[in-house]
Design a protein around this nucleic acid. Structure first.
Lengths: 242, 242
DNA sequence: AGAGTTCCGTGCGCTGGCGTACACAAGAGT
DNA sequence: ACTCTTGTGTACGCCAGCGCACGGAACTCT
């Protein structure tokens, strides 16, 4: 079924660049299609590309003890993957897994670093984005420690919906368990509870958000907090100088 | 009792600067005494000073839901407080609490930013330090979620010992509970277990590490992982150009 | 249509940490 | 010496999440 595609350049970071800068930047990018569950970086590995998701979105996963995993960040069209390059470190600290398939803009690290060094507007933008990511990391640490699965699941669904730009997306309980660092059964229980309250509906990996407002009330405050941090930090004069 | 004080400039970040740069930098600093439990920054507040601990050390605490707290970072003579300034954001994302009393070098934000902008060696150094901090945040998120209190306590003691430069330091169970995000009773149980194994000894807030190697074996891998991240990232040619 | 695979629901015993409460001991202040 | 505060030990019921296991439903492939 043919859907009207949005403008390919709808990554919000890039959209905030002045027209001229943006055009030059985009000239150095390749439009790529990211596949579900594709792994873009492994911790400790050298970063070869940076990604600016447009339709797609990517999970940042910390893994310890060789089989315990936890999502600690989510990158959609509001962000970028490979941000540590702006600190001059081309080694990924985390695993990056494609969570929602779709298009992204990709650039090689070398031209990205060049572009970053020459462009003060881009610098301001990405430095602020990194600040947001750090704040959210800290928030996530506390959230995963204190909040119950059902609330965390609700938050996760809201965050994902924002990045999927749709009230329906694909993710199995198994995958969710991996993200939230809990058992698959734990997700099933929480998801069933949400479904019974008519907040979501799902079947074999296809999740649909039915009641966004309702989800917010059962979610922990971390969804709202993360969002607030983003708008507070990036919001005002995001394309200004400084 | 008079103790031979080490050279006041034993912050490792500053020590890594070339002599001339370091002298100029220190000229802009004030040597201050930090008191136990003193709060240096609150989340959302404007940062007025940056601190380079020499003897002292500082906990970075995330707090949510108005009374749930969790230490997500520890800053001693290997780091600095106020690192977000290098991203051009002068708002603290976290609460900073003095964990170990002692001296620190303090500088106003304005001269710090000036110094940072003019000094490429300092830039490289602090950017890498921020990378380490981010990696540790992610590690902490996973650690607090998956690991049991006893293992986390052991890790915490090791990390603290490194920064206290002593096998004895002061911290009550109550305070530890606040840091680890658990009940005071939970700390007592874990600490008792460690004491029974002759790994530590404590009484009314005075803790002494008896068996460092033993502590490592009961600790989760996160202590070793954090340390490895630091040396891997900062270790080689830490005062080089890049 | 039949077989295989993926995804979801449920049950059971276990454990780590929670909230709460109380007792006691070691210093601190007078 | 005597109280007061602070720090630590212990106990009890509770619950969220764990590991494991099995059944069933839905979709896929041939």
């Amino acid at each position: 079924m043919p859907i009207i595609k949005p403008d390919p350049v709808t990554n919000r970071l890039l959209a905030a660049l002045p027209r001229k800068d943006r055009q030059r930047f985009l000239a150095g990018c390749t439009l790529v299609e990211l596949k579900f569950a594709e792994i873009l970086t492994e911790p400790g590995e050298r970063i070869r590309y940076v990604y600016f998701p447009t339709e797609s979105f990517i999970s940042l996963v910390a893994s310890i003890d060789n089989n315990a995993n936890l999502e600690v960040g989510l990158v959609g069209d509001e962000g970028m993957l490979g941000i540590s390059l702006i600190l001059g470190v081309d080694v990924s600290p985390l695993r990056a897994v494609v969570q929602g398939a779709g298009q992204a803009l990709r650039m090689n690290t070398a031209p990205f670093r060049r572009e970053f060094e020459q462009n003060p507007v881009l610098q301001r933008l990405l430095k602020r984005y990194l600040y947001v990511l750090i704040s959210q990391l800290a928030q996530t640490a506390a959230c995963t420690h204190f909040h119950v699965v059902e609330a965390r699941l609700a938050s996760w669904l809201l965050m994902t919906q924002d990045r999927a730009h749709s009230d329906a997306f694909h993710v199995t309980h198994e995958f969710l368990a991996y993200m939230l660092g809990v058992r698959r059964v734990g997700v099933t229980k929480a998801a069933t509870a949400l479904q019974n309250r008519k907040l979501i509906r799902y079947s074999r990996g296809n999740i649909r958000i039915l009641d966004r407002a309702g989800l917010k009330t059962v979610s922990c405050g971390c969804y709202a907090a993360d969002k607030a941090t983003y708008t507070r930090t990036m919001g005002k004069k995001v394309s200004g100088i400084g």
